[in-house]
């Protein structure tokens, strides 16, 4: 058995290895952006359609019995002799959902896709908690959806990290069922970042529709290993029998330049089709290679993609 695609680096076993202190300091300045305006149960840093308590003025209304006297505009009362209440845009808390594909196909590549996904989830979770948002983590595979919900405050960072460390990739991917579950798992409105290699033979469009209709502001992070992007460059050669780690299907090939070119064409068209589907249903998407620097990804790449600010 060739070691092609096997993870050669050390796997993370501590929370610190998922999120280093230097990266953490860089993430403090970031916040997750929701392209939609949601209402939350408690005041957060997110604008809400509901008028509430904040510093941003929205409108006036006549005083009614029972109103909070602190919001009466006394200057208007002095001029008009009538009581008007100042109405402010309420800043609600945001639910940031992070869903990790925990199927066996994610446990592949060098750097490992699943490790990359955990580090990315850890980083996004930390950003969410730092921004006083509510963070929920999900992992999905054909075994179902595991979750760690309603985390608030930076103090839950370690819990979040430990939960991620405890995840084990195995089994296949049932993306549609997972999306159905995720669409109903929302606690309030929020952003759901799905991290997956998106290599599903059943297709992703139906699942993404479930998520979009469920009220999530969905952002799909397609994560691919370098071995999947350019297998020949990473050392795939000769006559090999490819074995699918999820389905067990085999495919015998002789690695030739024309075959590699054809594979790349298929990969490119598959990704492009996925991106088109996402755009059609209002799902943001990005494609990343696991060998990309995490800070670069978060600070530069995802900011330009509008997921972070």
């Amino acid at each position: 058995m060739s070691n092609f695609g096997d993870t050669r680096h050390e796997r993370p076993s501590k929370v610190d290895e998922l999120l280093g202190s230097s990266l953490m300091s860089s993430l403090d300045k970031l916040d997750i952006i929701a392209r939609k305006i949601f209402s939350g149960k408690i005041q957060g840093e997110r604008r809400s359609k509901r008028r509430g308590v904040s510093v941003e003025f929205a409108d006036y209304r006549q005083y009614a019995a029972g109103d909070d006297l602190r919001f009466i505009d006394w200057n208007v009362y002095a001029r008009l002799d009538r009581l008007f209440m100042k109405i402010f845009i309420e800043e609600e808390e945001l639910t940031v959902g992070i869903a990790i594909d925990a199927s066996a196909s994610m446990d592949y590549g060098n750097p490992n896709k699943f490790d990359f996904a955990r580090r990315l989830a850890m980083s996004l979770g930390y950003i969410a908690l730092s921004s006083h948002n509510r963070a929920s983590l999900f992992s999905f595979s054909d075994r179902g959806v595991e979750r760690l919900t309603a985390l608030r405050g930076r103090s839950r960072t370690r819990d979040m990290g430990q939960w991620l460390l405890d995840l084990t990739p195995s089994g296949g991917t049932d993306f549609v069922e997972a999306c159905k579950t995720l669409s109903t798992a929302r606690q309030g409105r929020g952003v759901l970042v799905v991290i997956s290699d998106c290599l599903s033979e059943d297709g992703l469009s139906q699942g993404l529709k479930y998520l979009a209709r469920g009220g999530w502001d969905v952002f799909l992070m397609q994560t691919l290993a370098p071995e999947e992007i350019d297998p020949e460059h990473e050392g795939m050669e000769g006559d090999v029998r490819l074995e699918d780690v999820e389905t067990g299907n085999t495919c015998e090939i002789t690695v030739t330049s024309p075959l590699i070119e054809k594979y790349k064409e298929r990969l490119h068209s598959y990704c492009e089709e996925l991106r088109t589907q996402c755009a059609r249903i209002g799902v943001g998407s990005a494609r990343v290679s696991t060998d990309i620097d995490m800070e670069t990804l978060l600070v530069e790449y995802l900011r330009t993609r509008g997921l972070l600010r």
Binding site: M1, S2, L199, E201, E227, R241, D244
Partner: peptide, 11 residues
């Protein structure tokens, strides 16, 4: 052929 485990043979 040398067996090789990959994430997906779909493509």
């Amino acid at each position: 052929r040398q067996p090789l485990r990959i994430s997906s043979t779909m493509l």
